[in-house]
Write a protein that binds this DNA or RNA. Structure first.
Lengths: 216, 216
DNA sequence: TCGCTCAAGATTGGATCCAATATGGCCAAG
DNA sequence: CTTGGCCATATTGGATCCAATCTTGAGCGA
């Protein structure tokens, strides 16, 4: 059994750094600095950066370097619109193939998430886990990867947005999750599609109400 | 003005080779052979392969090598289902921002395409150009790239499928294109969405009728 | 004949080195 | 004071070389 390629290690490291906010959008990501920090040569760093670029996390300018991707409001909204189309499909494909364990996961994650109400950071992580659990039945990894990439590229901005949540915002979110979970557990594909679309759509509307968060 | 990075040159070369059918699905893509063929070192080849992997054109197995991606029927159908969701969105976002030149392109490409009726290879190319022209108004490149990647990964399989077209299949296709073009030229977003979804859906149905083409 | 072991060859992964390009500061001209 | 051009420096892009891993096929034994 072979060791894991350094490229993957570097990619994961940078991915985490970007999503945790350690590397802010627009921040320069120098090959040399990353290489020395992780004790590897620049080669795996370069390949990792290409991978992250394809995931939408960084932007590479030839002969200039890589920077953490910056999303303006329009781009962010566009991603939400794509999610509104793709995630209902993922739900429909997932429902019906969910094992009992996976259904239990959905319920468990939903309850854990509700328990984190008000704690922005933990809620963010839990929210992600819950939604992805709903798509656990998707057979082809391609669609799942696209969705995960969407979540990753917007994670940084959802964190900002969730800071503006009122108690009622949390409640509404939790309630929508309960409806979605119900649909998943009962195999209601079509109903789940609508719920998920509306769920994401509401997030997008909220996003457009806080458009100012993108200016700076 | 700087020269274009070798990585991009290699990537384009391999992309063309894969789409033209020169490299068949499952074919091994050795770094060394590509490098010597193009007169470059293996470094840009490796980076190009990573890029193509992110586009879904090749599959890289660590320490083993890269192979042209093979799609089974399920994966191919899944991509079509995603297209059925995303391309209507792209149409809706594009329509309304189309310039007069872009509208002329749509008409011109549609007529050129009809003139190629019966010529599988040329029809394939024209079909692609026509559809992409309908999305020319999309502002954010991210969605467009995803759609192009979908077309690229399935190009090889559409070629097989188009070989089974009867005269009536061509006619139906051309007629649907006329309806789509009409919607684009008149800015009928919602109508265009439905037409495109049904257009792709019909292709997917045809695909499932020729499922045997995937067995070998 | 079939399956297993193991070593030689081939191929990929990574490090180091050199060339090409962009960045940033400095100086001079307007 | 601003702006344009120029050169030193830092950083990326690519080539070459070495190490690690996988693949292949011959040999052996059941």
């Amino acid at each position: 059994m072979g060791r894991e390629p350094m490229t993957q290690v570097v990619a994961r490291h940078l991915r985490d750094a970007i999503q945790s906010g350690e590397l802010e959008p627009g921040a320069r990501v120098g090959q040399e600095s990353v290489a020395t920090e992780l004790g590897v040569s620049r080669i795996p760093v370069r390949e990792a950066l290409r991978q992250l670029e394809s995931e939408g996390l960084v932007v590479i300018v030839p002969n200039s370097g890589a920077k953490v991707a910056v999303l303006d409001f329009e781009e962010c909204a566009e991603i939400y619109k794509m999610r509104e189309r793709l995630e209902p499909l993922a739900f429909a494909e997932s429902v019906g193939r969910l094992t009992d364990e996976q259904k239990d996961d959905i319920t468990r994650l939903r309850l854990e998430l509700e328990a984190q109400t008000g704690h922005a950071q933990a809620y963010l992580e839990g929210d992600r886990r819950f939604h992805l659990a709903c798509y656990a039945g998707v057979a082809t990894p391609r669609m799942l990867k696209m969705i995960v990439d969407f979540w990753n590229t917007t994670q940084r901005y959802r964190r900002i947005l969730i800071g503006t949540f009122s108690d009622e915002d949390y409640d509404l979110n939790n309630f929508e999750h309960r409806l979605i979970a119900e649909a998943a557990l009962n195999g209601w594909g079509r109903r789940g599609e609508d719920l998920i679309r509306m769920h994401i759509e509401r997030s997008r509307f909220r996003l457009s109400h806080h458009q100012d968060l993108f200016n700076r």
